[in-house]
């Protein structure tokens, strides 16, 4: 647990003033889920991803998505090796432990699809041969929030594959002043110390599954899911997959809080990050506000 706190402190040095989001990102990692960061360019998305990789000693790659990228550009391709007179796989950038998929919404749906499928299956199939992706395997994807020209918005069904979506937003003024005075962030990142090994992280993710949730808590999660489904303001309710994700994220959050059981506050803490991007408003309005209001109206303890 101490290691986790230390990890938070380390990453906090470079992503200033964003403790909450940082904790969520860490939770997402521990829950073995993929993270989507939605922000305007230059808000420190890349820095966050890089810092996480550094602190957990993860093998890290970054891919800038463009519209002319093909699935093979990410997954890899079989090539003929003249020396061995045989085809061999040239691994794409996806074969890494932490993949930063920058501006994922610039890629065509097909390329997005290929990445998302790899995220889901945690393996890549090329020419009929399946290859496992390394463990752990995390994707931190970034996306621009506004519809910019030449972007392909991720469809809802694909968004479901990201456990969480967070946005960093502008830093607080004093933090920003520090930032401006601090100079080069990249060198800061380079100077971060590894706190937990990647094996340690795997162990942590296993521990998440052991965090216990009572029937009463599971009921609460179910009530929340049910509320999204019966609420007319949403186009569709949360899927069962989202429900599982919510519980898992709550477990990870509880573990970071130093508990081996989940309490409703854990669920509430991760609720927005898990639920918001999967819900679409039927008639406009802020999905964030609606998801928050659900949290206010769904009884924590059964009536």
């Amino acid at each position: 647990m101490q290691a986790l706190t230390k990890a938070l402190a380390q990453v906090g040095q470079v992503v200033l003033g964003k403790e909450e989001q940082l904790k969520l990102a860490l939770t997402c990692l521990m829950a073995n889920g993929h993270l989507l960061i939605e922000d305007l360019p230059g808000m420190g998305k890349t820095t966050l991803a890089h810092a996480l990789a550094r602190v957990f000693q993860l093998d890290y790659r970054r891919v800038q998505f463009t519209s002319d990228m093909l699935p093979a550009d990410i997954l890899g391709v079989s090539v003929f090796d003249p020396k061995s007179q045989d085809f061999s796989l040239r691994e794409g950038p996806v074969f890494t432990q932490l993949l930063l998929a920058d501006e994922i919404n610039r890629a065509t749906p097909k390329t997005q699809g290929a990445l998302l499928e790899a995220m889901e299956e945690r393996q890549v199939t090329l020419d009929g041969v399946s290859r496992k992706l390394p463990e752990p395997f995390f994707v931190v994807a970034t996306q621009n929030p506004v519809d910019q020209a030449g972007t392909f918005v991720l469809p809802e069904s694909q968004l479901d594959r990201f456990l969480m979506r967070i946005s960093l937003g502008y830093p607080a003024p004093e933090v920003e002043r520090n930032l401006l005075a601090g100079g080069d962030l990249r060198s800061l990142v380079r100077n971060l110390k590894a706190v937990i090994s990647s094996e340690g992280l795997i162990k942590l993710t296993r521990m998440v599954d052991k965090v216990r949730a009572t029937d009463e808590l599971i009921d609460y999660v179910q009530r929340l899911l049910d509320a999204t489904r019966s609420d007319d303001r949403f186009v569709a309710g949360l899927s069962p997959r989202a429900g599982l994700g919510l519980l898992k994220a709550a477990r990870a959050w509880a573990l970071i809080g130093g508990r081996d059981y989940v309490v409703p506050e854990d669920v509430q803490a991760v609720w927005s990050a898990v639920a918001e991007h999967r819900l679409a408003a039927r008639q406009g309005g802020s999905v964030a506000a609606m998801t928050q209001s659900l949290l206010q109206s769904v009884p924590v303890v059964r009536r």
Binding site: V263, P264, E265, Q268, L294, L295, Q296, S297, V298, P299, V300, V301, R303
Partner: peptide, 9 residues
């Protein structure tokens, strides 16, 4: 009070 209050809240 809101229905969704947890014990801590």
């Amino acid at each position: 009070l809101a229905q969704g209050l947890s014990p801590q809240a």
